[in-house]
């Protein structure tokens, strides 16, 4: 394989994955409105395009043409930088998530469908995911408004607390599969000779699985943990003062973080692209399986939002520090003991 060929393949993968995830994030805004309408016995957006499918496009045009307001006394540089810092990390974490096994077209192997097959994939996701907090903190602080500041303080306290649970649950998976590489974690879950349910980490790591899924809700500031933008108390939280495209950047960040987290849950706990009862499935079936599993988790995000009421902030903190953290730690210790005795 020549250098040029390798470059073109890498470029193609980057474009496909990046555009795919950004489009999924855009469609999620429509899905959110459609599902909420469905659950509340309404119709939802149905004017733009068939079934309202072009609504995200219309929204995008609207965001671009709206007036941008900067509150008086705001720190201009940071007010502008915050939305970018909020949207960037979740888009960069996409790079290490493997979506499909080695792509073989006409007998030629193009490698796994992932932008970067890093040996430290999990660490990369944790490191960049931890930076999403800067957008929230700086956005709230630079707005020069008490609602924004309170919202950003809450959001950052929440994200720091639940990141610990997230890291500890991921560590138990890493201990079981013995690798930090996401592709190898998926391969550790797909038994080559037969598809065995016990191989999938969600079975032996059931506690970690449940903790991880709940912690992702807190980490992405989604319902029932969306205190950063708790409307009755804080107007809109850290993005109260934002308008037009800057406001949209926060939302793009939130929805792409949801997409990445859903994909990460599937990769870590549900065997990624492996297909039940079909161990040697071709790559496109694997890709379809991966997308279907991710879709289920994206639906779970919406389902929970329109079903459960919001927690109280002290309840959230107590749950995070007094229940989730000890449980995750205990789970890690037990996992370590079992693995070392095996």
């Amino acid at each position: 394989m020549t250098t040029l060929e390798g470059f073109l393949i890498a470029l193609a993968k980057t474009v496909v994955i990046f555009l795919g995830v950004v489009n999924v994030a855009a469609l999620m805004t429509l899905a959110e409105r459609k599902f909420s309408a469905w659950m509340q016995y309404r119709i939802g957006p149905n004017r733009v395009g068939p079934y309202g499918l072009l609504q995200p496009l219309a929204d995008g045009v609207k965001f671009i043409f709206k007036e941008e307001l900067t509150p008086a006394g705001a720190n201009r540089f940071m007010f502008r930088a915050a939305p970018i810092l909020a949207a960037l990390p979740s888009m960069m974490t996409i790079a290490v998530i493997p979506f499909a096994p080695d792509i073989v077209i006409g007998g030629k192997n193009f490698g796994a469908l992932t932008i970067a097959d890093l040996d430290i994939g999990i660490l990369y996701i944790l490191a960049l995911g931890g930076l999403a907090i800067y957008g929230v903190i700086l956005g709230g602080w630079a707005s020069n408004s008490k609602y924004s500041l309170l919202g950003s303080l809450r959001a950052s306290a929440q994200m720091i607390s639940y990141e610990l649970t997230l890291i500890l649950t991921i560590l138990s998976v890493v201990v079981m599969s013995g690798s930090l590489n996401l592709r190898e974690i998926v391969e550790a879950q797909s038994d080559i000779t037969r598809w065995n349910a016990w191989n999938v980490h969600a079975m032996p790591q059931f506690v970690a699985f449940v903790l991880f899924v709940v912690a992702t809700f807190a980490e992405t500031n989604r319902h029932p943990f969306d205190f950063s933008e708790c409307e009755p108390e804080l107007v809109g939280g850290f993005h109260t003062e934002y308008s037009a495209m800057k406001w949209a950047m926060f939302y793009i960040g939130e929805y792409s973080a949801m997409t990445v987290m859903a994909a990460l849950t599937v990769v870590l706990f549900l065997g990624g692209w492996s297909v039940p009862f079909w161990p040697d499935a071709p790559w496109y079936v694997g890709l379809a399986a991966m997308l279907a599993k991710t879709g289920c988790f994206l639906f779970l995000f919406l389902w929970v939002r329109w079903t459960l009421p919001r927690f109280r902030f002290d309840q959230l903190m107590r749950l995070g520090w007094k229940v989730f953290l000890p449980l995750a730690l205990l789970n890690l210790v037990v996992t370590g003991a079992v693995v070392s005795l095996r």
Binding site: A127, L131, I133, S156, I160
Partner: peptide
Amino acid sequence: AAAQILVYAGAILVLFLF
């Protein structure tokens, strides 16, 4: 490199900001 970002940029500096 990852540890540098994770520990310093992700944790310690956030405390400074707070």
